[in-house]
Design a protein around this nucleic acid. Sequence first.
RNA 1: GGCGCGGUAGCCAAGUGGUAAGGCCGAGCUCUGCAAAAGCUCUAUGCGCCGGUUCAAUUCCGGCCCGCGCCUCCA
Length: 453
Amino acid sequence: MAIKLFDSLKREIRELSPSHPDGVFRFYNCGPTVYAPAHIGNFRTFVINDVLRRLLELELGPDRVKHVRNLTDVDDRTIGQSKKEGHPLGQITKKWTDKFHEDCAALNCLRPHVEPTATGHIPEQVNMIEVLMQKGNAYRAPDGSVYFKIASFPDYGALSRIKERELKVTNSAFDADHKDDVGDFALWKAYKPEDDGEVQWPGPQGASAGRPGWHIECSAMIKKHLGETIDLHTGGVDLLFPHHENEIAQSQCCNGTTFARHWYHSEHLLVDGTTMSKSKGNYYTLGDLVAKGYSPMAVRYALLMGHPRKQLNFTLDSLHAAESALASLRAFRATLPATGGDPGVFAAEFEALNNDLNTPAALGALFTVVNTKGLVVHAAAFDRVMFALGLDLNAVAAKTAAPAAITALADQRWAAKKAKDFTAADALRKELTAAGWSMLDRKDGYSLEPLKK
RNA sequence: GGCGCGGUAGCCAAGUGGUAAGGCCGAGCUCUGCAAAAGCUCUAUGCGCCGGUUCAAUUCCGGCCCGCGCCUCCA
């Protein structure tokens, strides 16, 4: 069953397929900038891409997919954070890269096969810029920076339909003074002592020392790790323009061949009905949600509850729903026999996923199976669905340890109950409730959980 | 101003030219000393509004209202 996915460039749903003779599918997903903890909007994109990676593996085989996701470790924000904290750039980016990996692991995202960094590919970027300068697609600005000349690439704007847009006239235009055209973008930024601190590298031939512009890192790293033509390039919608538009321009002008055969962009997450943004401050990190008592797996589930190409309004209620849904799946899984059953019962789930990554439809179909009485489900078939969605049912929210005073009350109540002194037991339960704890009795003992609001 | 997306039950959210998946919440029941958990059952004559096409529209077309996003370094 071929995987079909919307192509942002051709604007239609198309089948994914490897194009290289080795049969390896080349998949590049634009990664995070490592200067702060990623927020759940970022993770929506990475979780969606993780499902895509899993589907590709199921479709083509684990050894026939090469997944690359970069780490942007030098740009205005990373440098800004470095200056703010007074620590070297590398120390800052290491810290947030580690945190990013920790969060990804908690969300059960498969590790990409390669996670290249911008600072680890300076020569590759410089080389690419030099080629672009030689070919006449780039020019040196008076300050020693290098810009890409969009007028030199007739296809510029195909992805974002920039020519059909009437650009709002804005001030902004940082570096505008040095550009030939406002649409030209920086390939190399000349060193500015007041802004860049210690961060600089020797520049391309004829340019000043400095650092690469943002867009070039992806072009250079893709070329190095995946080749001149890749099978799929993905990211959040916000990257469509200018980032991906610029990547196409750089790569195609430099390499003279198709850059990416398929483009896919996932929509943004909304919180409280509006897009998350650092400037608005209405965002959650994974840590924020875990601190509220939700499990990372519930976060993952909640991120899959909406269609990836549609904005999803994220709420804490949806996390609660996700937590309950996971508990149902967990309970259902426990009832499955190890053998027997129809392996084909989950066809609808895969059909939904393979049809433009319709995760909510897949989850709906999943529960239809779960709710169908008398259906004999093969455990392995169920596990395959869980793998595709990346839902680890064994991952449970870390239990909050009860304070000693609470444990003492619980022990008293347990003893009272054993002694059939129900009046005392009930009184103690009330005390526990008043203290914000719920005591869950079992046959052989009890557990304590913080009271849900 | 330009480009694009969306409005489906209390909340979240699929979907289709032939009469509305699923999750949460809520209600009832079963089961448990109580509580929780678990299980069972129920919950939109309706898909923003107004027209049109059609035997038939939530689904197609037109208009309108509302919301959201992007428009040069935010996934």
